[in-house]
Design a protein around this nucleic acid. Structure first.
Lengths: 216, 216
DNA sequence: TCACGTTAAGCTGTGCACAGCTGAATATGA
DNA sequence: TCATATTCAGCTGTGCACAGCTTAACGTGA
């Protein structure tokens, strides 16, 4: 949290804070102080507040007057609800006017697979995050229905924290699963079968759901 | 837009502005001036800005630096995308752990039906809005999956403007359709069949979709 | 007359000081 | 010792002045 002299734009600050929450640098319950964040990013509290309101809308934080701004603590039933919705949304990806695949898509998946194999050899949580991130936005870019794409992005960031928690317990397992997932996505793209792509996503979300356990 | 002396809370201001956009008091393209709104609600620009940011997240307005805050102009393809998503979401209402019906639900629907019949005799756009509003939140309260409910609410407010535009062209048609819809909802509740409730909603959204025409 | 550079008005974005709320530590009485 | 009242530190919410951006009107020269 070193103070950087360079001013950051609102969009940059948003991405940084969002990633910190998703990567559990700010675990649920963490209190974020607007003044501290303002100092860190060399801006006043005003733009920081705007970013925090955006994060609140994304369901990642919650502001309470006189208390502080707190990273959301999701209950087990809320997490399960989010996962079940993601299952349904994934099924729609291939059905709701998907955009055509291109050679670029195939090449990018192959590149991601290379990185995932590397991850299997030496696991780094940041790299796992980055590959998942790139894969997500690649698929997001294929979704033709703008409303569906909006939802797909929304719930991705809500769910991200959950499986990162799991990734810390079983890094080799999630790395291997990621390679498998990329292989299935690759096949769907080679076969030019967007429905298969959506169902592949559905399945890997289901695997994540099956690993969920009520905590505490 | 008379200036009221009483200070309004942020939540009140949000509801009021949201309703004005949905009811087309602020048609798409309208420029909202933060200073004017601040005067109207007897607050400073700061809380007004917070509300406008929330509306921007809801997809109803768009702020552009140096220009103004403009009510969103949805393209035909965006409208169609939203409707198609609502179709799919409606189908899920009865499938994703709906909450049990109660006698209160049935009575409220019967009350709404009475108001809808009254509306058929004398159409008032505000009354049409209020009945739809009440019906929406009644159904929203039956949705057991919190993520699904969140989406149902989100797209309801995005789509509202569209059919209000249509309601101005065919008031008697939409009033009659509303009574029919309430009858179907009533039957689903009497039969204790949440799946039927979801499909009834799906169908009436589909009727709305079929009436959509590319404009201009 | 027209093209283009300049200017000015008006908007949102930002910084900062202060009001108001909350929760916990502290003081006070029995 | 304990229950209760009170104070206070620290947070978010609000108000306001100013910076920075955008656009349209205006002026100027060819």
């Amino acid at each position: 949290m070193a103070k950087t002299d360079k001013r950051s734009s609102a969009e940059e600050i948003f991405s940084i804070l969002r990633d910190r929450i998703c990567l559990l640098d700010y675990p649920p319950g963490t209190v974020l102080r607007e003044a501290d964040l303002a100092t860190e990013f060399s801006v006043s509290r005003t733009p920081v507040r705007a970013v925090l309101q955006k994060l609140a809308h994304a369901g990642l934080i919650e502001s309470r007057d006189g208390v502080g701004t707190i990273v959301t603590e999701l209950s087990f039933s809320e997490i399960r609800d989010i996962y079940r919705m993601r299952l349904k949304i994934a099924e729609l990806i291939g059905q709701m006017d998907p955009l055509p695949f291109s050679a670029v898509h195939r090449e990018e998946i192959e590149a991601l697979r290379g990185r995932a194999v590397e991850l299997k050899a030496r696991f780094r949580i940041e790299m796992y995050w980055q590959i998942n991130h790139d894969l997500h936005f690649l698929i997001s870019g294929i979704i033709g229905n703008s409303a569906l794409r909006q939802m797909w992005d929304h719930f991705y960031f809500q769910a991200a924290r959950i499986w990162y928690q799991h990734a810390r317990f079983d890094p080799t397992g999630v790395a291997a699963s990621l390679v498998d997932e990329l292989d299935e996505v690759h096949r769907a793209i080679c076969e030019d079968d967007p429905v298969a792509l959506g169902y592949a996503q559905r399945n890997y979300i289901a695997y994540g759901l099956s690993r969920l356990q009520p905590r505490r």
